[in-house]
């Protein structure tokens, strides 16, 4: 490749772009290939449960299925920094039920 080619062949690097794009898309697709079908539903339900107790955004929870040697690993990361506890009566009631605390009579 001489200097002239640099000016006259604008598509010189398109193969390199193709390779880079393929590597990224295939890394993503291969990761999803071995995931069990229930994973997206599990992820959604986990978010729902956590949301009953603390106010979190969807991007604060990460569910990952990985492999460590012979063991399959389901990794769940929930970021709580800056998350506010739920304080509405309905949620407080739910939280109480979950802890199986005795009901308190008022009045």
């Amino acid at each position: 490749m001489g200097l002239l080619n640099l000016f006259f062949s604008p598509h010189r690097h398109s193969a390199a772009i193709a390779k880079e794009r393929l590597k990224i898309v295939l890394a993503h697709e291969r990761a999803g290939r071995h995931a069990p079908d229930f994973l997206p539903k599990l992820q959604k339900e986990l978010i729902d449960v956590v949301c009953r107790y603390v106010e979190i955004r969807e991007d604060m929870i990460r569910v990952n299925l990985g492999k460590s040697g012979e063991t399959s690993l389901l990794e769940i990361n929930i970021e709580l920094d800056g998350a506010k506890p739920m304080l509405t009566p309905a949620h407080a009631g739910l939280a109480g039920a979950a802890r199986a605390a005795p009901p308190v009579k008022s009045g």
Partner: peptide, 16 residues
């Protein structure tokens, strides 16, 4: 076309 960088090389496809 491979020599001109317009097509994936054998090594590229093998590696991917």
């Amino acid at each position: 076309r491979v020599a001109k960088g317009e097509m994936l090389t054998v090594e590229d496809v093998k590696e991917i």
